[in-house]
Design a binder for these strands. Structure first.
Lengths: 219, 219, 219, 219
DNA sequence: TATGAATGAGGGTTCATTCAT
DNA sequence: AATGAATGAACCCTCATTCAT
């Protein structure tokens, strides 16, 4: 199952093999439970070579996060055409997102679970990527509102909250789509678009929702 | 900071002290990085006693998950009054959810991050709780639709997807609310209700969203 | 050859056994070449127990240095009676010194070679002991001079240099006495007393030695 | 700080660069802690070249010891003029010794500490050099005694002991002179000459020292 | 003459777990 | 009801050393 044992490869190639193996093992076992021995074996090299090229378990993990974060962002970017309407951009982006995470489950596990579960060096790394995506979505929502000649006065932090919720929902659905039989990337994206665009309110006949008054302490 | 060292306590009490300590350490360090030594010390007992009562690290972790899952579900249940309208039930449930997770961050970390990050014995445990909540939300959505005399033909798996998305968004927002300064449980709940009920569509002037046609392979 | 494997001993006893083993191995192999495995085996315990009681290789080494430094100083102190004349005190001290180092060659190796060969944590430890001994000798020389109603104006730093030279010579002779067949502690002490007291000058018929004039740079 | 990276140099030159680097690293880190990697890097060559020229870490260390031992002996020899009186020869030799060790602290560390701290291959190497110096001093003492028409019957092993003590004191003072601020080679040599020639006895008004009778076991 | 690529072996350290009291 | 004493197994990391060019 591991890489075929080929000897004497240039450093750049070997490094990618090591990262491939590391992403798989980190994704499967988790950061702490992953052993450098297993990673080296899967990469088809000896352990010292892994250390020679990637310094330490922490550095190796960081390198994995960086590579996979970059790959995910690029996959989403490649799926989006900025000259299309905002809703279409969101739809395309979501599809690309679900497709990529579905095709690289270990990488998604590394980004979504492992990196956030362990301390600051790693969480920051993935937080940067997430911020980038949230910013992208925030801007899409703003553009969409403008296109619809609506909500010129939508408060900014409200939009941020909505974007956060959308991205959060997408992240959760990624796990759902990857685990549940018969749910494709397209279906996951459609569900989320329906949820986000039409809202549940549509089901209720347009009756808008308003928060009940905050309970006051008895005087 | 740990439990006061009192000798000769009944077993049930000691067990709760141990679980308290374990939840805190598991939540802070993660499952693998948590050491039985640290847990025993924080609980104010010797290590063999932990093993005598809770058998193994795995069993201890499982016990933590079970206790905290039950507590979370009960907290949400206690916040909801089933004789109120569906939207009010959802609103109350969300508030209870965000309040409880905010007040028990270690417990939420155990349920949301640690349990899912490590293999099958634990993921299943928390999946059961999640299924319970998703079912509750699914039924709420159905009730709401019926109350509004709408969507009599809404396909079931569509509703399930929406519920999944809603719960996922809530889980993501929990982290957001707990980390972001100045975001209270009430605000997080409001943001999510707006998102779910009004949808983004409202911003767009009611223009409904429809998926573009699936690309067909060339004949 | 190692300690008899007796189970379940109180901590204090086990610690001494470990220090015994550690001193022997450190003395034989040197600090870096000594392996914790070998030390544990010689002590008749498992490695984790060594770490449980003594924390780390560095701490173990420090503990060895402290114990042996204290033992050596006490051995010398026990040999000296402060109510005897100064020369007799020096003679007795030297004998005790050579006897102790001869009987504990590994300990002497740890103090004289290993501790000084490795960085600051350790060198400082043994420097303190050495300073104590040098101070003792310095004072002895001063007392001897006073007893002889001589050298009331002997400059202090001169005395310090002499004491340093005497202690250095003693340390070197310790190795010589321990390695050379047929040289006892008594003989080593006698040689050094002759050297220090009578000086080589006696051999020369009392002709005192004076430094030639320092060469001046050409004007 | 390392050698400038120049390609294609004759073997003899490269070897000296490697030995320079090795002496510095061995002196700074100690034999075991020194890594071939660091030595090669400081020498400005690749590791295989070090092995090609010097075979192994042991051989490299031996080569260092040999080169530096030779250099030290030659430095002392160059400082001594055999046609001068014995005390002047000793004085000049000591000055040369302290000057050389002060100027080459890493080399002195290799000879005095590292070589003796590690097993037989190396200790023998430096013991040979030391024996040469002790023999030189022994002969100087004998000559001085003859010049003074004294001590025709001085037992040989007594002289050897005195020489040993003198050399040992010199070695110890070398460390003292190199570490203590404001102690020059000249001062160190003067202190030692005073100690050796005049002796402490001079301070005592010529009162000779005699060993107290050896304690007899009770009959 | 010179080096990039690669590894077997071993060392320090920690952990979950048990025994005997 | 509770603990001090003890360990097998594994993990991260480093090093001296070689191969193929």
């Amino acid at each position: 199952m591991g890489a075929v044992k080929t000897k004497r490869m240039p450093r750049a190639v070997r490094e990618q093999q090591m990262l491939d193996a590391a992403v798989e093992i980190f994704g499967r076992r988790g950061y702490m439970a992953a052993s450098m021995d297993e990673i080296a074996e899967l990469a088809g090299v000896s352990k010292p070579l892994v250390y020679l090229y990637l310094n330490s378990k922490e550095d190796l993990f960081t390198a994995c996060i960086r590579r996979e974060a970059k790959a995910l962002v690029e996959a989403v970017r490649a799926g989006v055409h900025t000259d299309l309407p905002a809703d279409r951009q969101l739809w395309d982006g979501l599809q690309a997102f679900f497709a990529h995470t579905g095709q690289h489950p270990h990488a998604w596990s590394v980004l979504h679970l492992q990196a956030r579960t362990h301390g600051e060096p790693f969480a920051a790394e993935v937080a940067a990527m997430r911020a980038e995506i949230v910013a992208f979505v925030t801007q899409l929502i703003a553009v969409a509102a403008r296109e619809a000649h609506r909500a010129p006065d939508l408060p900014e932090h409200e939009v941020a909250g909505l974007a956060e919720a959308l991205v959060g929902a997408a992240e959760s659905l990624a796990a759902w789509a990857n685990t549940t039989e018969g749910v494709s990337a397209r279906q996951a994206a459609a569900t989320l678009m329906n949820f986000a665009w039409a809202g549940l309110g549509n089901l209720m006949g347009g009756r808008p929702w308003t928060a009940p008054p905050e309970p006051q302490p008895l005087t």
